[in-house]
Design a protein around this nucleic acid. Structure first.
Length: 203
DNA sequence: GGCTGATCATTA
DNA sequence: TAATGATCAGCC
């Protein structure tokens, strides 16, 4: 066990992977390559809403310019996901947190349409070597945020002219509004956005 | 309270 | 260093 919860980021996710026998840990592949299924634990509040966004993968630096959504790492990772909700009140110590009902989810229909639109917008910026212009404000459901040891970390990258430079490593994340909708659909509940819209309509 | 940018652990 | 697993923390 980690010594404190501050140092336990990722511990529960890695634990569940080990328990379920995931084989592609630490690789740019779904956790269960033979099944094409990715395992994601998701921290939830008592009402089932996600507490945090969900990390998807790092950004494909060199090849994103001429890659397509169909073969992107984002789509490959999220094609089919086993979501495992985990009770995640920071005041509850790890051994006392409960595991919710896991469920399988496929990236299809409106889910895919939404992510694809975001990905194409973001990927075109990355492909032009303009990752420094990207902020987490972009993207309806998929966003790009730092993914590094700290703010001083840099990795080798190339701009649109092929000139090497060093940049802050970043990754793709799913906004919690998106995963909230996934969970709401699975368990037959309205999202907060839908509930407030309904309240407004009914005056 | 939500969101963005920063940060922590582990493995290869 | 860069991939994986994520959550923390402070500004709005």
């Amino acid at each position: 066990m980690p010594h404190s919860q501050l140092h336990a980021k990722g511990f529960v996710g890695a634990l569940i992977e080990k328990l379920l026998g995931a084989s592609a840990t630490s690789k740019a592949l779904p956790d269960f390559p033979e099944l094409g299924i990715e395992l994601k634990t998701i921290p939830v509040r008592p009402d089932g809403r996600p507490r945090e966004s969900t990390f998807v993968c790092t950004i494909e630096l060199a090849d994103i310019a001429d890659s397509e959504w169909e073969t992107s790492r984002v789509r490959n990772k999220l094609a089919e996901v086993l979501w495992v909700p985990i009770e995640a009140d920071p005041r509850t110590i790890l051994p006392e947190r409960r595991v919710g009902t896991p469920f399988l989810w496929k990236l299809e229909g409106a889910w895919e349409k939404t992510l694809r639109a975001d990905w194409e917008e973001l990927a075109s910026l990355v492909g032009r070597g303009q990752t420094e212009l990207i902020t987490a404000h972009l993207g309806v459901a998929l966003q790009v945020r730092p993914k590094a040891r700290d703010a001083s970390a840099r990795r080798r990258a190339f701009d649109e002219d092929g000139v090497a430079y060093r940049e802050l490593p970043r990754g793709f994340y799913l906004r919690s509004s998106f995963t909230e909708a996934i969970i709401a659909q699975q368990f037959g509940r309205r999202t907060r956005a839908e509930t407030s819209a309904r309240r407004t309509r009914n005056g």
